[in-house]
Simulated scan of single mutants.
Amino acid sequence: MPNPTAIVNPAGDNPETILHYAKKLGREVVRRQIFNNIYGRARKPRSKKQIMNAAGIPKDKSQQAQNALDHLAKHHLISKSENDGSVKDGSRILYGKLETIRAHKDEILKFADDSKAAASVATKRSMGVKGAPSFVKIRSGRRSMQKVRGKQLRIAYLVTNPDPSAALNTLQEAKQVTKAIREVALSHKIDLRPFLAPSFDDLIDALNEFRPHVVHFSGHGGDETLLFDNERIGDVGGTALDFDTIVELLDAVEFKPDGLILMACDTVEGAKKFLDHTSFVVAMADSIGDDAASDFSVRFYRSLGSGVALENAVKQGKVSIKGKGYPDAELPTLLTRNEAKAKKPLVS
C-alpha cells in the first residue's frame, strides 16, 4: 500500500516547501546516492537491491542504504509501496519517484548543498534575513505573574507579513480562526482582537490597553527573533525583535499574558526564556508550511472554545494537520511552566 504524499502545497512549489525538503535531504553520502539514483532515468519503482546496484552502493552498506530509504520515505522525498510482483528479487517494498519532488529536484539539491542560499530565501514563515537587529531596549521592572482572570479569555492576534515576497496568508488565517471561534459553544467567553501589521509599539500598546491573556503571533520568525512591521509604506523587510527584548517587554508590563502562541518558523529554540513571565508557550520546532500553520490554529482555537484543556487542544491541532497529510504535524510544541495547568481548559 503506497504511503501518503504529504506536502504543504499540492503543487509543491512554495519556497518553504522546497527548503523543508532540502533540509530533510541533507548531504549524507549514501542518502544522496539513493536520491539521485531514484530521480534518474528509471521510471518504475524499484527494490532496495536494485537501487543499491544501480547506485554502486556496496553490500556492506546495506543498513545505511535502508536507513537512507526510510528517511527519504518518512519525509516524503520518495514513494514507498508494497511489491506488486513486478520485481522478482524477493523484496517486499519498492521505492520510486514523487512527481512533486521530481519537478523541483534541482532546487531541492541546490538548497541542500548551499545553506547560505537557503537562508537568504524569504519563505512564508521565515524571514530570509540574518544578522543582529537593532532597536530600543525596554527598561525592565520585574513583576509577579498575573493569572487569567475574568469571564472572557482575551486573545491579541498579531498578524504581520512585512515581506510581501513571502506571500504569507496570515490575514486569511486570522479570518478563519475568528470564524471558527464564532461557531463554538463557548464563543461568548472568548474575545479575540486582531492587530494588523503590528509594530513593536503596537505590541506594547496591546499589552497595556487590551491586557490579553494570550498573545498570538502569526508571521515570520527564526534565529530567536520575530519580524514586526516597521510602519513605513513601501519599505519592506520589517523590524526583527529578538526574544531577549520581548522578554524585557514582558518584564516591563503590568499585566502578564498567560501564554504565547508563536506561529512562525523555528521558534522553539530559546522560547523557554518566556516561561519566566508566562505559563506556557506554543512554538514551532522547524519551518512550518503556511497552510499547516493556519489549519493548526483553526483547530487549536476551536478546541479551546469547546472547553478542551490546553495540552489536548495542542494535541488535537497536531492530529488535525496530520490527518490532512501535512508533514508538519510534529512541529507545534507546547512548553509549560506548570504541567497541571496545561491539563485544564483556558475557557470554561
Rank of each mutant, 00 (worst) to 15 (best):
P45G: 00
K80Y: 13
L72R: 04
E82C: 02
S91L: 05
R92T: 15
N67F: 10
R92L: 12
P58A: 11
D84Y: 05
H76M: 08
S81A: 14
N67I: 01
Q64E: 15
A65E: 01
D70P: 00
H76E: 01
L77T: 08
N83I: 03
M52F: 07
K59M: 08
A68C: 08
L69M: 09
K44C: 01
L72Y: 06
D60K: 03
N67S: 13
I93S: 03
S86F: 01
I57E: 00
Q63S: 14
A73G: 07
S62Y: 06
I57W: 00
I57D: 00
K61P: 04
P45A: 03
H75D: 12
H71E: 09
S47F: 01
I57Q: 00
R46F: 03
S79P: 02
I78M: 12
H76D: 08
Q64C: 04
G90H: 13
N53V: 13
S91G: 14
H75I: 01
N67R: 13
G56F: 06
A54M: 09
I93V: 14
S79H: 02
H75E: 10
A73Q: 04
R46H: 10
P58E: 07
S81D: 13
A68R: 01
G90E: 07
G90D: 09
S79T: 14
K48A: 15
A73V: 06
D70Y: 09
K88M: 07
N53E: 15
Q63G: 07
Q66L: 12
S86L: 02
H76Y: 14
L77E: 05
A73N: 07
G85A: 11
L72M: 08
H71R: 12
I78K: 03
K88I: 03
Q64D: 14
H75Y: 15
H71A: 12
H71S: 14
A73S: 15
D70E: 11
S62P: 00
R46C: 06
H75C: 00
L72C: 10
L77K: 10
S47G: 07
Q64P: 11
K80W: 09
G85Q: 05
Q64L: 15
R92Y: 01
K61Q: 15
I78E: 02
V87P: 04
H75G: 02
